[in-house]
Design a protein around this nucleic acid. Structure first.
Lengths: 334, 334
DNA sequence: TTGAAAGCGCTAACAA
DNA sequence: TTGTTAGCGCTTTCAA
């Protein structure tokens, strides 16, 4: 494999000159540069980023830590869309992405900062972490530049991008209220998710503004799981047959709720209106097509990567970015 | 950041001893080893993989080259599932994954082997490449260990994993024939995809065995695109209203064909039977739910990664792996 | 069982 | 404009 040493030998110059020529420094004679470039091409040279990284202490690499990239979770292409966004931005800005995937067993062996420092990533993006994940504490304590997705924790070196879940949830419930509903249940995710707390707040806000009493027993946790939501909805609808609408904190759960409603013979939206959250691909294909609150997942990833690289290159402070949601009206609410 | 030098100083030994101790070599006194391990932990040491990679010429990194990881393509979670499989295997075997994403503009600047050598990846997995992609030639010529997904090219250092598309397609068409169909059209992908050639072969095989004449005009290319397939299906059904069943080379196209059939008022499966290929998530949610040929995409990725690492570690020859398909009967065929 | 020394491929002070 | 030299953090040969 060709090194700058080889090039130097052929060109009859020192390695320093080769290095400078190839890196576009100004203090090198045009003729020498051309000659060096030619030889480099001839010898099919490619720089060794390891060696470069070793001395520069910069690797042009972003680490991405994802939880839930396994067989079971591929139904929800949230992660994939975020990843696509990250990937797009990163390749535009000429970085590379290394994917760390951690299981809980691995977490015991290796700390967050070990993981990052081993690979000498310049910065990190975290997606899909639960709020009580042990890594999260480390993230804030460590000084590795980091952007979180949907987790509102920040410090000198860590920022986050999220969508306005309070507002999004409120938007959903407002829409239900406008459509004439008063008995509105809420299928939430779980308490370890920041967004669940937010969406609950939005739900309550909307009810309060409309003068509707909040009822504890109308709120259930579906763990963001289709099956769990289906179960919970069955119980809920059984106990409170007067409910006319359910707001679900994720589309996947909305799908579960739909199943449950169907199997107890409830017409959607005739007898029960359902509104979801996320606007996953499946939402438009459900029957009836699911009305939902859309988040731009690709953008979530793209903006996170962009902000991170900004931090890295401009050495600016960590950024906090909030994206807007959008109500997608389909046919599951009446 | 702590280095082995720091540890050596504190422990009062040489860096050599530290290196050996930490890497589990046998020729180091147990006492010294324990002492060194303790100090390493205390100092919160993590090894610098760049430095190690530089001298060892192994990085424990697999590169993954994916085409089509962009906003437009996220509908099709084929890529994501493959990626999940790759990721799972790689993390089990303690490698890391670096994601290369290339656009055609970038390809002009950097060759395949440059891309790989720069990052010094030990091996590469390629997914979603077209058969005429310029990188593909390079892959075979270069001696970088590589596994291709769904592209049957091999050499000393490159293998592939694919599903048996001929058999899969045959299985689909056989099922249609068994169900009594004789006028069976085929919505194929495009000529740059290996799998399209294979599936066409399977389609022809099935017809031949059943004594049904192959008709050129029954075969269309939908480019694996929902919209394109919808268009093509409209033309096809208009020109040949006697067609009773369509085999589609991908579920996404099958969805397009369904749309087209619906908008011309054809009942599925009453008047037109449709069978897809892939078993994407959406397939089960379509209405009617789509009968299709399933491939295990996760496994495709997992096996590719596994075979690659086998090659790397056992220095064995490149492997060729063929996975089976499975007929998933739902409600779009009658 | 341990250490000294060389070297992986590169960049960057400093000197010329 | 160019070269000499040192050093990034690690592994490994060789010698003790």
């Amino acid at each position: 494999m060709t090194t700058i040493k080889d090039i130097a030998k052929v060109a009859g110059v020192s390695v320093t000159t080769v290095s400078r020529a190839l890196n576009g420094y100004s203090d090198v004679n045009e003729k020498t540069r051309r000659k060096i470039s030619e030889i480099a091409k001839e010898l099919n040279y490619s720089p060794n980023t390891l060696a470069r990284g070793l001395v520069m202490k910069k690797t042009k690499t972003i680490g991405m830590l994802v939880s839930g990239m396994n067989r079971a979770n591929s139904k929800d292409n949230f992660t994939f869309e975020v990843l696509s966004g990250v990937n797009e931005c990163i390749s535009e800005r000429d970085y590379d992405l290394v994917l760390f995937s951690t299981t809980t067993t691995k977490q015991r062996e290796k700390t967050y900062s070990q993981l990052c420092r081993e690979r000498r990533v310049d910065g990190v993006i975290l997606q899909g972490m639960k709020i009580d994940d042990p890594y999260l504490k480390e993230v804030v304590e460590s000084d590795i530049p980091c952007m979180l997705i949907d987790i509102p924790i920040s410090s000198e070196s860590v920022g986050y991008v999220t969508t306005d879940s309070v507002l999004g949830a409120k938007r959903a419930v407002d829409y239900l209220i406008q459509s004439g509903h008063k008995k509105i249940a809420f299928m939430n995710g779980h308490d370890q998710a920041y967004v669940s707390q937010q969406r609950l707040k939005g739900y309550r806000d909307a009810l309060r503004e409309a003068g509707i009493d909040f009822r504890e027993e109308y709120v259930r946790n579906g763990d963001f799981l289709e099956d769990k939501a289906e179960e919970e909805a069955a119980k809920l609808l059984d106990e409170h047959p007067d409910i006319t609408a359910i707001f679900c904190a994720s589309d996947l759960m909305a799908l579960g709720v739909m199943k449950s409603a169907k199997s107890s013979g409830l017409a959607i939206p005739g007898q029960l209106s359902i509104i979801g959250y996320d606007n996953i691909l499946l939402a438009g294909y459900a029957s009836p097509p699911l009305t939902t609150i859309a988040q731009d997942k690709f953008d979530l990833g793209y903006k996170a990567a962009n902000a991170l690289i900004d931090m890295l290159e401009e050495e600016g402070p960590a950024k906090i970015i909030t994206l807007e949601t959008e109500l997608i009206v389909r046919e599951s609410v009446q």
